[in-house]
Simulated scan of single mutants.
Amino acid sequence: MQPTFLPWTGYMALMDHVDEFVFLDHVQFDKRSWQQRNRIKTANGPQWLTVPVISRGKSDQAIRDVLINRDTPDFPRKMIGAIEHGYGKAAFYKDYAEDVFALLSRDIRHLLDLNIALIEFFKDRLDIDTPVAFSSRMNVAGRKAALLADICRECGADIYISPPGSKDYLDAADEFEEAGIPVRYFAYEHPDWPQVHGDFEPYMSVLDLLMNCGPEAGRIMREGILSEGIRHP
């Protein structure tokens, strides 16, 4: 999976569910994607939080090379203010806010490093102990299914668990069959939890789950995990 900024709960659940999680960090950066932004819930509804990056003249840059634009006015102060406004009255705001704000305020140059620091923070608070790896540190090649199969071979995987969004092109590809690696699709049903600001709003950053549910967040996250469908080679 590409390293996501403030990922949603299902992303963290997938990480918890596998034996090893690989960050796909050597592929091309997609501006205005989940790699640099995500949503939180506020009194006015969902709000985007976006990390400003340096992208002019760098259309082909890899995710690992993307630099945060620290010269952008109001970053990260404005982002911290939005989180404070959205979750200041949440039950566990005081338990997590200071640490999250400290990470956002650190002088981190690369977007990848910020995303990983936040993901590691969420891993710790959700009691996820899955080891992680980075595709940029592997001797792998290809695109789409070919690349994923090559990563699986590099890791010595006997099963590949994929997000369902990749099903169409994986089912049409032969690379996993040729590698002898079954493909399973991760099935996740978004759980509900008590939120501030009215009715439940799904698909927010996992920050929403932590701020509202605290020590129960890991248990609630795992409630959404369903059995996978499997495609054997």
Rank of each mutant, 00 (worst) to 15 (best):
Ile220Met: 04
Cys213Met: 14
Ile181Tyr: 08
Gly218Tyr: 01
Ser55Gly: 11
Glu98Asp: 15
Ser105Asn: 13
Glu216Phe: 07
Tyr188Val: 08
Ala133Lys: 09
Pro46Gly: 02
Pro182Ile: 02
Glu84Met: 03
Asp65Glu: 09
Gln36Tyr: 05
Ile83Tyr: 00
Ile68Glu: 00
Asp65Phe: 01
Val53Lys: 04
Asn44Glu: 11
Phe134Gly: 06
Lys144Cys: 06
Leu126Val: 04
Leu226Thr: 15
Leu111Gln: 06
Leu126Phe: 01
Tyr93Cys: 08
Ile151Gln: 04
Glu201Lys: 09
Leu49Pro: 09
Pro182His: 08
Lys144Ala: 11
Gly229His: 10
Asp199Arg: 15
Ser55Gln: 10
Gly10Gln: 01
Phe92Trp: 09
Leu49Ile: 14
Phe101Thr: 11
Asp19Trp: 02
Ile108Asp: 00
Arg143Met: 11
Ser33Val: 09
Asp19Val: 05
Glu20Ser: 10
Pro7Lys: 03
Gly156Val: 06
Gly180Phe: 01
Gly165Ala: 03
Asp16Met: 02
Pro73Met: 00
Pro194Trp: 08
Leu147Ala: 08
Tyr11Ala: 04
Pro202Lys: 02
Gly198Cys: 08
Leu170Gln: 01
Ile161His: 10
Arg153Met: 07
Gly45Arg: 07
Val132Thr: 15
Lys58Trp: 11
Ala97Leu: 00
Ser227Arg: 12
Ala97Thr: 11
Leu209Ser: 07
Met12Thr: 02
Ala173Val: 11
Gly10Phe: 06
Lys41His: 10
Pro191Leu: 08
Pro233Ser: 08
Leu49Trp: 10
Lys123Tyr: 10
Phe101Arg: 03
His197Tyr: 13
Leu104Glu: 04
His190Ile: 05
Ser136Lys: 14
Ala187Ser: 14
Ile40Leu: 08
Gly180Val: 09
Leu114Gln: 04
Glu189Met: 11
Arg222His: 02
Lys89Gly: 05
Leu226Met: 12
Ser166Pro: 14
Phe134Leu: 14
Arg39Asn: 04
Ala149Asp: 04
Asp16Leu: 02
Val183Tyr: 02
Met221Ser: 02
Met138Val: 06
Val100Asp: 08
Met221Leu: 11
Glu177Asp: 15
Arg143Ile: 13
Asp25Trp: 02
His110Cys: 13
Asp199Gln: 12
Val53Pro: 07
Ile54His: 01
Val140Asn: 00
Glu177Leu: 03
Phe5Arg: 11
Ala146Gly: 13
Leu209Asp: 00
Ala146Val: 07
Ala187Phe: 05
Leu6Met: 04
Gln61Lys: 06
Ser227Trp: 07
Val100Arg: 00
Pro46His: 02
Arg64Lys: 13
Ile63Asn: 05
Glu228Pro: 13
Val66Cys: 05
Arg222Leu: 03
Ile68Met: 00
Ser162Leu: 01
